[in-house]
Amino acid sequence: MADAIFDNPRLAAIYDAFEAPREDLEHYLALAQEYGAEQVIDLGCGTGVLARALAAAGCTVIGIDPARASLDIAEAAETSESLTATPSDSPTVEWRHGTSAQIPASDADLVTMTGNVAQVFLGVAELESVFADCARGLRTGGRLIFETRDPAARAWQAWAQTPARTLDIDGIGKVTQTFMLGQVDLPFVSFTHLYRFHETGDSIGSRSRLRFHSYGEITSALETAGFEVDEVRDAPDRPGREWVFIARRR
Results as ranks from 00 to 15, higher is better:
D237K: 05
L210R: 05
E38Q: 14
W243S: 03
P104H: 10
R209I: 11
L181D: 04
A51D: 04
A160F: 03
Y35D: 06
M113A: 13
D107P: 01
A74H: 10
L167P: 03
E242A: 15
G36P: 06
A56Y: 01
Y215R: 15
F197Y: 07
A56D: 13
C134F: 04
G44E: 11
P239I: 05
H27P: 00
V111D: 09
T47H: 00
R233S: 11
R211P: 00
A13L: 00
E128S: 14
D170G: 12
E26I: 06
A225V: 10
Y195D: 01
R233T: 06
R238I: 02
A235F: 10
R248I: 04
A247K: 05
S190C: 04
A221F: 08
A12R: 03
M113K: 09
V184F: 04
D133Y: 01
R143L: 11
R233C: 08
L50E: 03
G63L: 00
G240F: 08
M113T: 07
S106H: 13
Q183L: 14
A152F: 06
S90W: 03
P151R: 07
Q161L: 13
A13F: 01
G44M: 09
T86Y: 10
R136M: 05
S82R: 15
V117N: 14
F18G: 05
I103F: 09
R249H: 10
W95N: 08
S82K: 14
A53L: 08
I41A: 02
A221V: 05
M1A: 13
R233E: 12
D42L: 06
A51P: 08
I14L: 08
V229E: 05
D16W: 04
I218F: 06
D168G: 00
G216F: 10
Y195R: 00
E223A: 15
T166C: 10
R249D: 06
T79P: 00
V40P: 01
T112K: 06
T114S: 13
L138A: 02
